[in-house]
Design a protein around this nucleic acid. Structure first.
Length: 444
RNA sequence: GCAGCAGUAGCUCAGUUGGUUAGAGCACUAGUUUGUGGAACUAGGGGUCGGUGGUUCGAAUCCACCCUGCUGUACCA
């Protein structure tokens, strides 16, 4: 006895992967078209690199490891490990190193593409998502860093956000480096724990973050996280230094000067911005939304940043003896789209076709005649593609969200006119075939 | 990874000391209307009650383990 039910394939998706429907995709297209416009305006080149890279090219092989770390999706191809990229920055560094002699320096490129992360998904975070990256490669000039902030903000506003809806936070890795040196926080472990604790200030607040700098912290689910075990004296000094409103870092002051020249004001100096631990070497930025985000159940969730970046002057040199400073910024597009859908009531133009109802299969010639006239004018339209009575056809059109149906049965054929029914108002009008397209355009 | 909560129809959920063929609303299908959707009425389909094992005459209900989801936390190169 074989139970065939057990052999049926699962209709569930792997953890962290999602289907995306038309509404979201259309808003994403809208965002992407804004991005492209801005990037062209700012003089960036469009680039695409493949989804897979050799695992060691994207920095996944640590000296003492033979297998890729968890965090990337990998498999062994012949004898080499390859992985799905986890960001667009490492592939860019690889691309620059590979094509160093051909590309103009500085090199400005932007890229849109999916990236994959093999880790636990969170609210609004998936294991496959679309990222946008803009980078300046081959320049130490901080105008590049400043312009990235300006450009990201232009993109956000073009997508419909107000100035009060977002903030570009800026800090510098040099600031914390200097501070830690002064406080003699030198062990690698302590430095990274401290940085991570500081990274959480804006989410947890100073009081909670201080626990992480000291002994440790118990979160509201009861889980306990070990702290950096700094002395009270060190903690106090960190607090007073980082709460100072005046940036004690030359690169930040310089960027702020450039912001003035651009008349860019929607930034905030925030020393708690840390961003990843490894490759940043100078200014770092993070883009945060200032409005609440809810999940599909209507609960307000911790949304985090929608993008960020910074200067990584040593990344390209990993691939060879190239002295090639660089700086870049990226946006998580799907998260931005998710947030935008809550903020703005997007009026996405209907893409649903007008339906030509079928009364009689033998009249196909008449129906196609009307269809061709509409499609010649780029009006989305179709002859009812199913089988069934008029009622069923109306239900189909309604559920689809069609703007209108066209009725062309015996009565209409006799009178030489068609009936156009507006599905929103329910009104029907009898019009000449030659005027049909114009009437429909009024509805769209 | 750690912690809290939760898994009953496509969806939202009810099912209160364990007791016949497991329910509701919405959705779906058909009809009332052989040329009219979004309203109403009638009828109907659809569930190994997350899984496995155990306790019991009997389990959606009790016990154990596992799986999955949500949220928080950690990690996020």
């Amino acid at each position: 006895m074989v139970k065939d039910k057990k052999t049926k394939p699962s209709k569930e998706l792997p953890l962290g992967f999602v289907d995306r429907k038309e509404k979201e995709l259309l808003i994403r297209d809208f965002v992407i078209s804004n991005i492209k416009e801005v990037m062209i305006k700012y003089g960036f080149q469009y680039l695409e690199t493949p989804s897979f890279e050799y695992t060691d090219s994207i920095g996944k092989f640590l000296p003492d490891k033979e297998r890729p770390d968890s965090g990337v999706f990998s498999f062994k191809d012949e004898n080499k490990w390859i992985s799905l990229r986890y960001d667009l920055t490492a592939p860019l560094a690889r691309y620059v190193a590979k094509n160093y002699l051909e590309i103009p320096k500085p090199f400005k490129r932007y890229q849109l593409g999916s990236v994959w992360r093999n880790e636990k998904p969170g609210p609004g975070r998936f294991r496959e998502f679309l990222q946008f990256d803009a980078d300046y490669v081959g320049t130490k000039n901080l105008q590049a860093d400043a312009e990235l902030c300006v450009l990201i903000s232009e993109i956000l506003e073009k997508c419909g956000l107000d100035k009060k809806d977002y903030t570009v936070k800026i800090s510098s890795r040099k600031l914390t480096d200097k501070l830690f040196e002064k406080l003699k926080i030198t062990s690698k472990d302590q430095v990274s724990t401290t940085l991570r604790a500081l990274d959480k200030i804006d989410r947890l607040g100073w009081e909670e973050a201080k626990k992480l700098l000291g002994e440790g912290r118990k979160d509201k689910s009861g889980d306990y996280t070990k702290g950096a075990k700094l002395s009270n004296d060190q903690i106090k000094k960190i607090e007073t230094t980082l709460q100072g409103k005046i940036p004690d870092s030359e690169d930040i002051s310089e960027i702020l000067e450039i912001f003035k020249a651009y008349n860019f004001k929607n930034y905030k100096f925030d020393p708690s911005v840390i961003r990843g631990l490894e490759y940043y070497t100078g200014p770092i930025f993070e883009v945060n939304l200032n409005f609440q985000i809810k999940n599909l159940k209507g609960q307000t969730i911790q949304f985090g940043s929608i993008g960020g970046g910074g200067r990584y002057d040593n990344l390209v040199s990993n691939f060879g003896n190239l002295d090639c400073p660089a700086t870049g910024i990226s946006i998580g597009l799907d998260r931005l789209v998710f947030a935008l859908m809550q903020k703005k009531d997007f009026k996405i133009k209907s893409t649903r076709p007008v339906i030509i109802c079928v009364f009689d299969k033998d009249k196909i010639k008449e129906y196609v005649g009307i269809l061709n006239k509409l499609r010649a004018l780029n009006i989305s339209s179709e002859i009812y593609p199913g089988e069934g009575k008029l009622k069923k056809q109306m239900e189909y059109a309604n559920k689809l969200g069609s703007p209108a149906v066209i009725l062309y049965g015996d009565n209409e054929i006799k009178s030489g006119k068609v009936t156009l029914k507006n599905l929103e108002s329910g009104n029907e009008s009898s019009i000449k075939i030659e005027e049909l397209a114009n009437e429909i355009k009024k509805l769209l």
